[in-house]
């Protein structure tokens, strides 16, 4: 079964890079430019994992995670927080909001795939 990943980032180039990498590895990818768009996208489609940035217009990553997790049926969908910060605070906030972990930007394709393979079956 193909796993569908939701990629939430306001940078089209990052979304594209992530999407291309994941698709090449056999994942299905849904893209969203911010939290609001992401919530719209997941309302209609089942996703198996989420990658989300923090700083985005309209709705940031932390808020999106909380909104996403508010739906009990999504409690078990893994969320990986993408951050440029290596500092602990934002990570902890992301985790408190419901992310299972974080990945620091920049990351390369190999690292992305290794993380994805850990959080979701291909």
């Amino acid at each position: 079964m193909t796993r569908r990943i939701l990629v939430v980032d306001d940078s089209p180039s990052v979304r594209r890079m992530v999407a291309m990498t994941l698709k090449a590895a056999g994942y299905d990818v849904v893209e969203a430019g911010d939290g609001v768009e992401a919530l719209e996208k997941v309302a209609g489609a089942e996703v198996h994992a989420v990658l989300t940035d923090q700083n985005m217009p309209r709705m940031d990553g932390l808020t999106f995670i909380r909104e996403f997790r508010a739906d009990a049926s999504r409690h078990r969908i893994p969320i990986v927080f993408l951050s440029t910060e290596s500092e602990g605070e934002i990570k902890e906030r992301a985790r408190a909001a419901g992310a299972i972990g974080w990945m620091v930007k920049p990351f390369d394709q190999a690292k992305l795939l290794s993380v994805m393979s850990r959080v979701v079956a291909a």
């Binding site: 990945m103 959080v119 979701v120």
Partner: peptide, 23 residues
């Protein structure tokens, strides 16, 4: 030097999760 330490921290929750690959 990369400006920020390239780093990953993923904790896979211990309870069995259908959507996760539990190694």
């Amino acid at each position: 030097v990369a400006p920020v330490a390239a780093d990953i921290d993923i904790v896979i929750p211990p309870e069995p999760q259908p959507a996760l690959r539990v190694q």
